[in-house]
Design a protein around this nucleic acid. Structure first.
Length: 878
DNA sequence: ATAGGGTTAG
């Protein structure tokens, strides 16, 4: 037996190193020698630290008359071993017995308080016993109030602590603000602490970094980072991880990578922080690469990692990996974590695998909370099962009771697509009732839904109520306007937003780029690009993709290419945008090369990519390649053929003159042929002079799309191309009888900040005189160069000379002439047109491009034509 | 050298 005075320190040492066996041995010998009561407090503490609160309790029960230290040690044993109810019960028993409450018991009891009410009762005990003056107790009170959302109470306790305040007090107060979404105040508290002369420790640094993250304040964050480097606290594991989290959450992926590389001991949390930031900002592919690196560094991903990675899988189309994670989870029984389940429902939902999503949803009994419902409802909205989304929403209201902004936003997407005005109004009323009308996402959903339901009045009202300080409301309106072709109004609204002092973010700029794309506003697109650079948004994946798309739509495939090469990360959307752009510009071979590059990079194509690929084959006349892709896409990429793929294929076969093959495909496809299919066949029948097929297609179109005037014109042209003039006359009479009007052909050209609109024989433009003079001048030069007008197929009921004059006054010619007299020599000219370019203008622009030595780029409804030096990029195949 | 308070990833 050891000498009694060494026993206490020994037990303390065993407790610190959790050496259970030697400690238990001492316990036994104390029992034997009858000295237990002397060292009972050491023993209770020892068992508590060894995570054996039951043994601590048995020691306590052996003591005939436990003192206040024994009592508070037992309370601590329960509290520190996650038994809050036992801790509280023991505390009550101790109070009931009249045992003195000391300053050690209160903090651990406060940690166990289930709500602020009980916490306040403990606070009252502290005041009654005068223990509230103890700084440990005060700090614990600050933490308790902070944790239950009573920040102002926490502040009061903090203030009352006066000169006793220490670093823990400051950190606790900061944490209280951070936990209650008052991050900028937390940053201020940090400033006060520094000002008061107290040097922040590692807790303070990690806490203030989180505050900067929460208040999205990168400027302050960088200052704190610099300060941490100066004081060496950037080497602290928590602070380093918090810095990684800050940079990656705030979108500075580059700095996140730098800081991540300097984390002294990279752990799962560091990886998770970095990976989740990547996913948050759309760098899905990067996130997946990080997972591999993480695994090869020997760390095991946990549920945090997996739920981030599932999002990345959903975004990047890395669907096999998603399935592997699902399998891994079933095996590892990691299903208790709801986040991963939600990630699975979300991933399957976004992949169009609604059955799998439903299965996971129905199988995940343990925690079917709000998030699960949201994931499934979002999946349904996403996949177009809008009716199911609505009925799930109703079921949810009875089974789950809770609804949040994600739910509302998802269900509004469905009411929008169903154009269900009364449902939209009901969701609007519910949002108002439960206080979500201040939420930007809900406002966004409402505006969008009212737009789609054609209720401009309500959309405007919601917008005006929230427009003053809400950038998301502006973004919704700008998106809605640009999607409805009101690009100019979208630009105006953006200017208004700037005037109101709202800082543009990547979302609104991406939306604005779409407006530029729809307007073919190249110059304005470049300005938005400049905004993106100036505000350091170039690492934003969405904005980057929008740039590719916009430059392509504005006729500059070179700029699109540059934007594409500069993307920080290329996802399926980026590749598809580039392939689609190349396809529209007639660079079929290059589009296919890019597609092969995409496959080499192991980016899984989706159905949109495949449409672009087929479209590329179409514009370049690559029939065999198209057939190969069309026939093997299911097998190679797991993509089912959609109506669009069939329409594209039928168009391609028709254009190539394989009308029989095209009809075979129409008859064998699993869809009812739609307007796009018959339209393609009608166009093909005109080019390849098959009036019989033209008649059939036109008859279908008269039923399917009676509102479209183009059908009559194309049919008449088909007859005209086959020399069937009687039939031409019949169609013309039919048009007159049915009062069908040709959709007016229009062209647009951008000059500086303004888009100029022209219609045929337009005289309304302020510079009309100069424009017509230019056309006349060009006409002479063209005739000298060998140009012969081709007026055979024009439907206007006028004599030949007049027809030729009309041709030379087509809207695209006016637009080109206007650009010629308004822009410097040699500058390329970009014109957008609402119909297909006419044959005669196509010939004329070839001549003009050579005469004036300019590149003329025409975007028609179908594709781009680049005229340069007497030739067109389409090779006259269109 | 008997007990207590504040920090990280979805």
């Amino acid at each position: 037996m050891r000498s009694p005075e060494t026993i206490g320190p020994l037990l303390t040492r065993y407790a610190a190193s959790k050496s259970l066996l030697p400690g238990a041995h001492i316990h036994a010998s104390l029992l034997k020698s009858g000295l237990l009561a002397t060292f009972c407090n050491h023993l209770i503490s020892f068992y508590s630290k060894c995570r054996l609160p039951g043994s601590a309790r048995r020691v306590f029960d052996e003591i005939p008359d436990p003192c206040h230290v024994s009592w508070s040690s037992l309370v601590t044993a329960y509290s520190n071993n996650a038994l809050p109810r036992d801790a509280l019960g023991t505390f009550r028993a101790m109070r009931a017995r009249g045992v003195r409450c000391n300053e050690f018991a209160l903090p651990v009891v406060l940690k166990c308080a289930p709500d602020a009410g009980l916490g306040a009762q403990v606070h009252a005990v502290a005041v009654a016993t005068g223990l509230n003056g103890d700084i440990f107790v005060a700090n614990a009170l600050v933490a308790m109030y902070g944790g239950f959302g009573h920040v102002d109470e926490a502040r009061k306790v903090f203030d009352e602590a006066g000169s006793q305040r220490n670093a823990v007090s400051w950190n606790g107060l900061m944490s209280a603000y951070v936990k209650n979404d008052r991050c900028s105040e937390a940053v201020e508290v940090f400033g006060e602490m520094v000002w008061s002369g107290l040097r922040p420790n590692e807790f303070g640094f990690s806490c203030v970094v989180n505050a900067c993250t929460g208040s999205r304040d990168l400027e302050d964050g960088k200052k704190v980072h610099a300060m941490a480097v100066r004081t060496g606290y950037d080497r602290d594991a928590f602070t380093a991880n918090a810095l990684v989290d800050m940079y990656s959450k705030l979108g500075d992926i580059h700095m996140a990578a730098v800081v991540f590389g300097k984390v002294p001991e990279t752990d799962v949390v560091s990886w998770n922080a970095f990976i989740s930031g990547c996913v948050l900002h759309g760098h899905d592919q990067h996130a997946l690469e990080l997972l591999l690196q993480m695994k090869s560094s020997g760390l095991v991903p946990n549920v945090f990692t997996l739920s981030s990675i599932l999002k990345a899988c959903a975004g990047a189309g890395a669907f096999d990996l998603g399935r592997q994670i699902h399998g891994f989870m079933i095996k590892a029984c990691a299903d208790s974590d709801g986040y991963v389940g939600v990630g699975l429902v979300d991933m399957y939902g976004r992949h169009g695998l609604l059955d799998d999503a439903r299965k996971v949803f129905n199988w995940w009994i343990p925690r079917k909370d709000l998030l699960f419902w949201n994931a499934l409802i979002s999946g349904c909205s996403h996949e177009g099962c809008h009716g199911e989304a609505l009925s799930l929403f109703c079921r949810m209201r009875t089974e789950c009771f809770e609804v949040n902004r994600t739910t509302l936003a998802a269900v509004l997407k469905s009411t929008a697509n169903l154009e269900a005005i009364s449902d939209t109004r009901q969701v609007h009323a519910l949002s108002e009732k439960i206080g979500f009308l201040s939420d930007p996402h809900v406002v966004n959903g409402l505006i969008d839904s009212y737009w789609k339901c054609n209720c401009l009045h309500y959309a405007n009202r919601v917008f005006e109520e929230h427009s003053s300080d809400n950038i998301i409301a502006f973004t919704s309106m700008i998106t809605a306007l640009s999607q409805r072709g009101q690009g100019e109004d979208a630009m105006k609204l953006f200017m208004e937003m700037l005037r109101k002092g709202l800082e543009p973010d990547p979302f609104v700029l991406s939306s604005l780029l779409n407006a530029c794309a729809s307007l073919s506003a190249y110059e304005q697109g470049k300005q938005v690009h400049a905004h993106l650079i100036k505000r350091q948004f170039m690492s934003d994946v969405f904005a980057g993709n929008a740039l590719v798309y916009t430059y392509a739509k504005c006729g500059s495939i070179e700029d699109a290419d540059l934007a594409f090469s500069g993307l920080p990360e290329k996802g399926v959307v980026s590749w598809s945008a580039m392939i689609g752009g190349l396809a529209q510009h007639g660079h079929g071979k290059r589009a296919l090369e890019v597609f092969r590059g995409m496959v080499d990079e192991r980016i899984a194509p989706n159905h949109i990519t495949m449409t672009s690929v087929l479209c590329a084959c179409n514009h370049a006349g690559l029939v065999d390649e198209a057939k190969r892709y069309f026939n093997s896409m299911k097998e190679m990429f797991g993509i089912d053929r959609t109506e669009e793929h069939y329409a594209c294929m039928i168009d391609l076969l028709g254009r190539a003159g394989k009308l029989d093959d095209a009809m075979d495909l129409v008859n064998s496809m699993p869809f009812e042929a739609n307007g796009a299919v018959w339209g393609a066949l009608l166009a093909a029948s005109r080019v390849h002079r098959d009036p019989e097929l033209g008649k059939l297609a036109a008859e279908k179109l008269f039923i399917l799309e009676p509102e479209k005037s183009g059908t009559h014109v194309l049919l008449a042209n088909t007859y005209a191309s086959a020399g069937m003039w009687d039939e031409v006359a019949k169609v013309r009479k039919l048009m007159k009888d049915n009062n069908v009007k040709k959709e007016p052909a229009m062209s647009w050209v951008e000059l500086k900040d303004k888009v100029h609109t022209f219609i045929v024989s337009d005289k309304s433009h302020p510079r009309a005189r100069d424009i017509y003079a230019k056309l006349e001048e060009l006409g002479d030069l063209m005739t000298k160069a060998g140009y012969v007008p081709n007026a055979d197929v024009d439907l206007h009921d006028v004599d030949r000379g007049e027809k030729e004059l009309l041709l030379s006054h087509h809207s695209e010619r006016l637009a080109v002439a206007f650009a010629l007299i308004s822009t410097p020599a040699g500058a390329p000219i970009r014109v957008k047109k609402n119909l297909r370019i006419c044959r005669d203008c196509h010939v004329a622009f070839k001549f003009i491009s050579k005469i004036v030595s300019r590149e003329i780029i025409i975007r028609d409804v179908n594709r781009f034509h680049h005229f340069s030096d007497g030739a067109c990029s389409c090779g006259d195949y269109w």
